[in-house]
């Protein structure tokens, strides 16, 4: 969606007064709704509604060989499909750079937080480990896909149950697709990773942009945060995006806000965790 210069100007003028088109304050999130178990065939699946933005996130599991540099650790592969179903700005065909970046930001936030205990996902060292296939499908892009997808990813992982396995003739294991899922959950820490994407519009900075605000924005910074033993925020992953640079003052403002705002979002997410 290309926005008109008039709309852009209106958004910027309102932000000068600390206001937004939909009446929110600069750091307010839109209403968050979660619908769980949207596919009975998935080990977990979540529909995230953040205002009008809708994203499906699901987890499937496979048994595979570990990577040579981590023979006793499980694997996670995150993908995002930006189907033109969700926006006239998305195109058909193999994942383009914006889909790849979305998946990698979500992936990194979870991976670097040590949310998942990779060693406990090993069945037999060097032979067989669990692979988590985390797939992200936006259904409607009305802004802030990154944070919506990251919220869905955390809830999907928390909800997931492992499939049952059976022994193969050669002594190895494989997933039993005919069987019901087991009741075994993933080995996760209680330290919930939260991904928060700040957007710069003009010289103001906001959270949870609508699609119009995203179009008016020239720069973004995504932060993935967890808590340390003293309940202080720790940054696990960062991604600067957008064409314009951020000033040192912008970064100071974001870093000064991230602790409080990520804790607010974490509280919101925790409401949906069993």
């Amino acid at each position: 969606m290309d926005i008109s210069n008039l709309t852009r100007k209106k958004i910027e003028e309102l932000l000068e007064k600390g206001k937004r088109l939909d009446g929110r304050n600069i750091f307010d999130f839109r209403d968050l709704e979660i619908e769980k178990n949207i596919s009975i065939n998935a080990e977990s699946s979540v529909k995230v509604k953040l205002g009008e933005t809708i994203v499906l996130v699901g987890a499937k599991f496979e048994l595979s060989k570990p990577y040579p540099d981590s023979l006793d650790e499980g694997v996670m592969i995150t993908t995002a499909e930006l189907s033109p179903l969700a926006s006239e700005n998305f195109e058909l065909g193999p994942p383009r750079i914006n889909a790849i970046e979305l998946a990698r930001i979500v992936d990194r936030g979870i991976r670097e937080s040590e949310f998942i205990n990779w060693k406990k996902l090993c069945l037999k060292e060097g032979e067989s480990v669990w692979t988590i296939l985390l797939d992200i499908y936006p259904l409607n892009d009305s802004g802030n896909l990154i944070d919506a997808a990251a919220i869905g990813a955390v809830i999907a992982l928390k909800d997931a149950v492992l499939p049952k396995i059976k022994e193969k003739e050669d002594g190895g294991f494989e997933v039993d697709f005919k069987a019901e899922f087991s009741k075994n959950k993933l080995p996760l820490s209680h330290n919930i990773p939260v991904t928060l994407t700040f957007r710069k519009i003009g010289d103001k900075i906001i959270l949870d942009p609508t699609i119009l605000e995203e179009e008016a924005s020239s720069a973004r910074l995504s932060l993935a945060l967890t808590l340390n033993d003293k309940q202080e925020s720790v940054i696990n992953a960062l991604q600067k995006g957008g064409a314009e640079p951020l000033s040192k003052e912008d970064l100071d403002f974001i870093l000064d806000s991230a602790d409080k705002e990520s804790k607010k979002l974490r509280k919101l997410i925790e409401k949906f965790l069993k």
Binding site: N41, A42, G58, K60, D135, F177
Partner: peptide
């Protein structure tokens, strides 16, 4: 028309695309 299934709509994961 473009028909597709999401990867986790089926028991054995469908490769995206």
């Amino acid at each position: 028309c473009y028909y597709d299934m999401i990867s986790f709509s089926v028991k054995e994961r469908k490769r995206p695309g």
